[in-house]
Computed example of a mutant assay.
Amino acid sequence: MTEFNLDFPRAYGELSATAIFREQPEDFQVDEDLGFSPGGSGEHVFLHIRKRGENTAWVAEKIATLAGVNVNDIGYCGRKDRHAVTTQWFSVYLPKGPEPIWETINSDSIQLLNVSRHQQKLRRGDHQQNHFVICLRNVKTDDRELLVQKIEKVFAFGVPNYFGEQRFGHNGNNLVEAQAILIDSKRYRDKQKRGLMLSAARSFLFNQVLAARVVAENWSQCLDGDVELFSTGPLWGRGRSLVAGQMAEFEQHVLDNWREWCNGLEHAGLLQERRALQLIPHNAGYQWHHDHLLLKFSLNAGEFATAILRELSTLQTAVVIAE
């Protein structure tokens, strides 16, 4: 069985701090920001929900049961962490007929915050950004001032925009499944699950290119041949590479060992896309509370908070994080 190394190189050197991560759900808070307000009318009911210690798919099933619809009629922008306190929007396709009493979904772990209507179903990535409040407990370091300097650099100049480990499943199991699909022609009846596995493969290849750029110390630089005014990496798929020259040669070289995966993703019908290599948090700040470090920042849709945390401290947690 192929082993997948998910310990990608860091941009700011070796870690000199340790901290306890996710000791309780309140240590990881995420508020989803759609970037727009529901229109107030339309075929889709919009539910704004706060959940604690529950995963998004489970909440979607609860909503579907309450509404008497198929779970495929429930939309959301993305899966939010389970071991956390998060707010996010769900859409329910209910074009006509009476609505259920939505408040009956409330429980010790679910709270309904708002109800509205809108014309379109929510789909993955429809939101604008996520706002994070994260508490790292019992931070230990021999040089707190050095850690503070690293935090300020990370907030000012950003970090490598790696896909987080949750994209790859527990112990990289999504990549094992992706290998079976791409190389061994394994078939999936569940199209959504198959899509998640292919997305994991694509993300892993992107991380390989980004890791090579980090080692080359040019991950934040726009190189000759890029198609944007900022540094980007490939989300592999069908068609010619969107970059040329130095960039194209570099990426081809990095992905030579993954040529079968690239071919498999092309045959799966995915199209070539690009993703920024540099993640710069917005509205970032930090506070010390004795030995606890409180971090606040906002990230665009598709960016991972773990990309920031992994540059600051070795995280000690018993929580299994899986998408």
Results as ranks from 00 to 15, higher is better:
35 G>Y: 06
36 F>T: 11
36 F>H: 14
39 G>Y: 09
39 G>E: 15
40 G>I: 06
40 G>H: 08
40 G>D: 07
42 G>R: 03
42 G>F: 02
42 G>W: 02
43 E>V: 12
43 E>F: 08
44 H>E: 09
44 H>L: 08
44 H>K: 08
45 V>S: 03
46 F>L: 11
49 I>V: 15
50 R>D: 01
51 K>S: 02
52 R>C: 09
53 G>I: 06
54 E>A: 13
57 A>H: 12
57 A>N: 11
59 V>M: 05
59 V>Y: 01
60 A>S: 12
60 A>P: 01
61 E>N: 12
62 K>R: 15
65 T>Y: 12
65 T>G: 11
67 A>H: 02
68 G>E: 08
68 G>M: 08
70 N>P: 04
72 N>E: 14
74 I>G: 00
74 I>E: 00
75 G>H: 01
78 G>E: 03
78 G>D: 07
79 R>D: 09
80 K>R: 11
80 K>I: 02
81 D>Q: 06
82 R>G: 05
82 R>F: 10
82 R>W: 09
83 H>I: 01
85 V>N: 00
86 T>Q: 01
89 W>K: 04
90 F>A: 03
91 S>F: 01
92 V>F: 06
96 K>L: 10
96 K>H: 15
99 E>T: 14
101 I>Y: 13
101 I>R: 14
103 E>A: 14
105 I>G: 00
106 N>A: 10
108 D>Y: 04
110 I>F: 00
111 Q>D: 09
112 L>A: 07
115 V>S: 04
116 S>R: 06
116 S>T: 11
117 R>L: 05
117 R>C: 06
118 H>M: 09
119 Q>C: 05
119 Q>P: 09
121 K>W: 05
121 K>M: 06
121 K>S: 09
125 G>R: 08
127 H>S: 02
127 H>C: 02
128 Q>I: 01
129 Q>N: 12
130 N>F: 05
132 F>T: 01
133 V>G: 06
133 V>F: 09
136 L>T: 05
137 R>C: 03
137 R>G: 03
138 N>E: 15
142 D>N: 15
143 D>C: 11
144 R>P: 04
144 R>H: 11
145 E>T: 15
145 E>F: 12
146 L>V: 13
147 L>Y: 07
147 L>G: 04
149 Q>H: 12
150 K>Y: 06
150 K>F: 03
150 K>P: 02
150 K>Q: 14
151 I>Y: 01
152 E>R: 13
153 K>S: 12
153 K>D: 10
153 K>L: 13
153 K>A: 11
153 K>V: 08
154 V>L: 10
154 V>Y: 02
